[in-house]
Computed example of a mutant assay.
Amino acid sequence: MLEHGGRLLRAAHEYGIPAEQWLDLSTGVSPYAWPVPPLPVSAWQRLPEDDDGLIDIARTYYGHPSLLPVAGSQSAIQALPSLRERSRVGVLDPGYAEHAHAWQRAGHKVERAAADALFARAVRYDVVVLIHPNNPGGERFELDTLLALHATLARRGGWLVVDEAFIDATPERSLCAAHALPGLIVLRSVGKFFGLAGARAGFVCAEPALLVALRERLGPWSLSGPARHVLKLALADTAWQSAQRERLHATAARLSKLLTHHGLAPDAGCAFFHWRRDDRAAALQRALARQGVLVRRFEQPHSLRFGLPGDDAAFARLDAALAGWRSIDRKQEVAP
């Protein structure tokens, strides 16, 4: 399997620091979680039922009439390639690596490329996969540009797959507003914005016929009863959602300022994380880890992704850890 953030227990073992003593900034999950209330016993005792009201609440939240609950967008990422015959697939790079991995494993011809190249060469692809905003590169696209790309693909029976796992802080930029266009598939994640990654919950927004095929592939009960119960409440809590968006944007701006202060001005990012290209990425990740701060490192290109610190104490700890690294880095620069 591919590497991802969130491997806290492995880091704790490697560096000899108990897991509870770490500041984990290795994922893009919001540090501010929707407050889950006590769950009714029936949520655990009964099999999940499709007509429990979740779909109606989700339609209102996402603004899309046709959607399918799934066990995190990852399950859809792995299943979608099996719904097409061999295709030429263009995937945004750098980006969430599971997309290219899934299409390759299913036998499709995959080309990784930057966004400009994907748009310019759209006629050569049967499927284009974008992450919006991109993870980790932070690229954002205008809705008209995305719809034009979709039209180019759909004329030949192609697909535009858009992973919107990090769009919830800026919902006005979502393609869900385009509704159920043939060949347009939008993936949404609950875990990032609501801080509920452990629920493993998400939605696929697409035309009904494709959702029927995807549901057949995934099988019944893709979401647990407890997850469905929590989602109904969280997706309907508009006051919390509004406050969450303001909080995420403010925290992301504060993180950008802190990184810039330490000579690590972000190259990109969004309301959930910031991304820094740097040839010193491996050394910096290790230096932070030795101080109990976990960040996500990428090899191509050499870079780091910083998730959001959740409070003043977390910001102070990251500040101190970066200051310690800068001191070591300066000494190495002047060493004979």
Rank of each mutant, 00 (worst) to 15 (best):
M1I: 10
E3N: 09
D24G: 13
V29K: 04
A43R: 02
A43D: 02
L47V: 04
D56E: 15
Y61N: 00
P65G: 06
V70P: 01
S73C: 06
P81M: 11
R86P: 09
S87N: 03
G90I: 12
P94N: 10
G95M: 09
A102D: 00
W103A: 02
R105L: 13
R105G: 09
H108C: 04
F119I: 10
F119D: 01
A120S: 14
V123I: 07
L130K: 14
I131E: 12
N135G: 00
N135R: 14
G137V: 03
R140M: 09
H150R: 07
T152S: 13
R155M: 05
L160P: 05
A169K: 06
P171M: 06
A180G: 05
L181P: 08
G191V: 11
K192N: 14
F194D: 07
A199T: 05
F203M: 04
C205W: 01
A209D: 05
L210Y: 01
L211P: 01
A213P: 03
V230D: 05
K232H: 12
L233G: 08
L233W: 13
D237W: 13
Q241V: 06
A243T: 12
L248Q: 09
A253K: 15
S256P: 10
L258F: 14
T260S: 15
G263W: 05
L264D: 04
A265W: 01
A265M: 10
R276A: 07
A287I: 10
L288D: 02
R290P: 02
E299P: 05
H302T: 07
H302E: 11
G310F: 15
D312P: 04
D312L: 12
A316R: 13
R317M: 07
D319R: 11
R326P: 04
R330M: 05
